[in-house]
Design a binder for these strands. Structure first.
Lengths: 216, 216
DNA sequence: ACTAAATTACTGACCAGTCAGTTATTAGTG
DNA sequence: CACTAATAACTGACTGGTCAGTAATTTAGT
């Protein structure tokens, strides 16, 4: 019909792995790992299933690649903030959390969180890798930001593990929710007041000094 | 080998459905829905696969039954607290949250939370049912408890949706985590200080009046 | 003996993974 | 430059195993 046919076969060795991983990520997020067929992944990447197997040994290997390439490269940015914002612990913590939401939670990468939670039981080795390479590192970062605040007398001294869970879980759960329950809460977008209220609650709970509403 | 053989075939029409649902629940939690084979479910219930089909029409129907029977019957108890504890909003909210953890989050039922999050995308109708019958009802309960506190001047007046998420998500995420990442964090039990710190953080954020540490 | 509960053996769809064959690209030759 | 041989990327039909669901058969209980 169309005068110019879509090019059938292209040789683009360099681009394939990334395109396949991206296709796999979006499908894993949409349908889960088990329900995603490799024919679909290949089709979405504009390629045949055989080609997929030129670049990935197995479905499991594809899953692992999606996790690795998707999340790990983000840490430099977050960890850099630890150095530059030591003087204002509250702002440091705020920027780290907001940064996570902007770069991960609110993007496709948020889907990886839901994916790992769903599939961790079936892929212990991938889960372990993700745990060591991502979760531990992230929680250490949060804990460090909190500890700086405690050292400077800005935050109260409480159990670190508890604090970082209380601080982070509302954001994490938000990301997970968005990627699983969106069919029910029809695209319930966050209320505008979410982040202001979130930070106010958090910092009220953390601050050492009594709350001051007004400026001197 | 053993002198007394296990009874092979028993006719126990009454008990089968509950036993099968319980077996299915535990397996769904362990392995997820897709990875659970009906032969396993039947075996764990001490029965053959054919028997399973005498009581459930399909794997999907079994899934729905597990969700329905597992969670819904719990609400009477929680909602009763709303009546009896109106005079002390802080204690009311505390008891509701602690009650959820004791009866749901820390038990097998916590696994249902993880299961629904994992499978909601593949079972829109079950997800919708669960959303309407459980989530909405539960969130309304939390919102009501908070509103009572606001009416009495005990809590500050903030966005309800945000508040109940901030309050509940740390517990929910804890339950979800326990049922998916337990293979990595080898049975990381909650630190003793979790609940005291949790409630102190929460209520510091909610209270209208400045914090008072000591009694008169 | 009769019937309802339970089992066993079977079927067919589905899909991860394979491989023999096809086409694009590059290198070699005159 | 043109033409051919060699190689590397890509394709899609096929296979073998798995598992939801079914039908034929056996057994427990009355």
């Amino acid at each position: 019909m169309s005068p110019l046919e879509v090019v059938r076969r292209q040789r683009r060795k360099e681009a394939r792995p990334a395109e396949l991983a991206a296709a796999a990520l979006s499908l894993f997020i949409e349908k889960g790992f088990a329900a995603t067929r490799l024919d679909e992944v290949a089709a979405r990447a504009g390629v045949s299933k055989g080609t997929l197997y030129l670049y990935f040994d197995s479905k499991d290997a594809l899953f692992k690649a999606v996790i690795e390439e998707g999340v790990v490269p983000l840490f430099e940015e977050f960890e850099a903030k630890l150095e530059t914002l030591q003087d204002d612990p509250e702002r440091l913590l705020r920027e780290i959390l907001q940064g996570w939401w902007d770069k991960v939670g609110s993007t496709d990468l948020g889907g990886i969180c839901k994916l790992m939670i769903s599939e961790a039981g079936n892929f212990p080795e991938v889960a372990r890798y993700h745990h060591d390479a991502v979760i531990v590192r992230w929680m250490a970062l949060l804990g460090r930001a909190y500890a700086i605040g405690v050292e400077r007398g800005v935050f109260r001294d409480m159990d670190v593990e508890t604090v970082r869970q209380l601080v982070f879980f509302p954001l994490l759960m938000q990301a997970v929710w968005k990627n699983s329950m969106s069919c029910c809460d029809e695209t319930r977008s966050l209320p505008d007041s979410y982040f202001p209220t979130y930070f106010e609650m958090i910092f009220r709970g953390l601050r050492a000094a009594p709350v001051q509403e007004s400026r001197p």
